[in-house]
Measured scan of single mutants.
Amino acid sequence: MDVFMKGLSKAKEGVVAAAEKTKQGVAEAAGKTKEGVLYVGSKTKEGVVHGVATVAEKTKEQVTNVGGAVVTGVTAVAQKTVEGAGSIAAATGFVKKDQLGKNEEGAPQEGILEDMPVDPDNEAYEMPSEEGYQDYEPEA
């Protein structure tokens, strides 16, 4: 019985440690998101679009440190934060509304985080759909 109880105690310690790591990862992701939003706020009209992409990228980098179902929630929060940063930029006159959601080359930025393969159960990952990809044929 002692062996059984000791095993359960060790398992509990492992769960607590994993929860603490997840909590730490979420806190880091939130900190990076805040950094990115402050970065966007300090940019001029020309830099705002690039700044919004930076927020998304920093958040995406930190999301990889967070495991399990938390990833889905962090990704949703990050996307809403990026959308909010863009709205703030438009409201303050840093950028025109028609410039939001495009990178410096004018290509749409939507789907940055949505296409990231995420499995809350950590069982399997699927690649994003290939609808947006084109076949590449090298020139002879």
Rank of each mutant, 00 (worst) to 15 (best):
V49W: 11
V82S: 08
E130Y: 13
I88S: 06
V15F: 04
G101V: 05
E123A: 06
I88M: 09
V26A: 03
A76W: 02
K80Y: 06
M116H: 07
T64K: 09
A124C: 11
N65I: 08
N122K: 07
Y39S: 10
G86T: 05
L8Y: 06
K97S: 10
G25Q: 15
G25F: 13
H50G: 07
S129D: 04
D115M: 12
V52R: 02
V48S: 02
A69G: 06
V16F: 11
E130V: 02
Q109F: 03
F4Y: 11
E123M: 09
V52W: 08
T64F: 03
L38F: 15
L38H: 08
V55Y: 02
A29M: 06
A90W: 09
A27W: 11
Q134I: 10
Y133K: 04
V63D: 02
G73K: 11
V66K: 06
Q24E: 05
A18K: 04
E110I: 05
E105V: 12
G93T: 01
A85P: 04
A17K: 13
G86C: 12
L113Y: 06
A76Y: 12
D135E: 11
V66I: 15
P120V: 04
Y125T: 13
M1W: 00
G106C: 09
P128K: 07
G86H: 14
L113M: 07
G67D: 03
S9V: 02
P138G: 12
V77Q: 02
T72P: 00
Q62D: 03
V48M: 09
I88E: 05
N65L: 08
V55K: 01
K43E: 00
A17H: 01
T75F: 14
G31C: 11
P120I: 14
G36N: 15
G36H: 15
Q99E: 10
Y133H: 02
V48Q: 00
G47V: 03
P128D: 06
E131H: 12
D135I: 11
K96Y: 14
G86V: 02
G132V: 02
V82A: 03
K97V: 15
A76I: 08
T81K: 05
E126W: 11
G73V: 12
K12S: 08
V3Y: 03
N65M: 05
V66L: 06
D98F: 03
Q99M: 13
Y133S: 04
T22Q: 00
G41W: 03
L38Y: 08
A56N: 07
Q62Y: 01
A91W: 12
G67Q: 11
E46T: 10
T44R: 02
G41C: 03
M1E: 00
A90D: 03
D121G: 10
T92R: 01
G106I: 05
N122L: 13
V71N: 06
D119R: 12
G31S: 15
G25E: 09
D115Q: 14
E139N: 09
G31I: 13
F4M: 04
G68N: 15
F94G: 13
V16A: 07
P117W: 03
E110L: 01
K10M: 02
V118H: 14
Y136E: 10
G14F: 07
P120D: 13
G41D: 00
A78R: 08
A11T: 06
V26D: 00
A29S: 03
V66A: 09
K23Y: 09
V15N: 00
S129C: 05
Y39M: 02
